[in-house]
């Protein structure tokens, strides 16, 4: 570990004296230290590919577009939920007021709808509970 600290410039004076003294007398450790230094030196010389300047010019616009789209998706979601709720309400009203349907047909459809709503509420509750207990909630997932 002292070798790592020395290579990364994080070693204290006392530790450095200790490391140098040991490396001076131990051929095996001196070889190991030299190899680590060469590895670190070569790694530091790797570079990353250049990105054409036009990508940077458009970068912020890209972030703004994504931000706008994320808001648009929320609006779409709320709208879809409102339409769905309205349709379910209408269906329930029709089921109750249609005399030609058998009582067990009405009961079956209503039970199905109650079950679906229950499932939806259960998943929503689970998601909410996960958000409360998630240690990364302040970070974002």
């Amino acid at each position: 570990m002292l070798m790592m600290r020395k290579i990364d410039g994080e070693i204290g004076e006392d530790e450095e004296v200790k490391l140098n003294a040991h490396v001076a007398t131990c051929r095996e450790c001196a070889k190991e230290f030299d190899q680590y230094k060469r590895i670190a030196g070569a790694t530091a010389k790797l570079a990353m590919k250049r990105v054409p300047p036009e990508h940077w010019d458009l970068y912020w616009a890209g972030v703004l577009n994504k931000l706008e789209r994320s808001i648009a998706w929320i609006v779409v979601g709320v709208g879809a939920l409102a339409v769905l709720a309205s349709m379910i309400f209408r269906l329930v009203v029709i089921l109750i007021t249609t005399n030609s349907l058998m009582w067990w047909t009405k009961a079956g459809v209503l039970t199905l709808m109650v079950g679906m709503t229950w499932l939806f509420a259960s998943v929503a509750r689970e998601k909410m509970a996960m958000r409360k207990t998630d240690k990364y909630r302040g970070i974002w997932r």
Binding site: A42, K45, L46, A47, M48, K49
Partner: peptide, 11 residues
């Protein structure tokens, strides 16, 4: 994405 600044075999 990464390139070596040196054209050596080791790099």
């Amino acid at each position: 994405p990464f390139v070596a600044a040196e054209r050596s075999e080791m790099a």
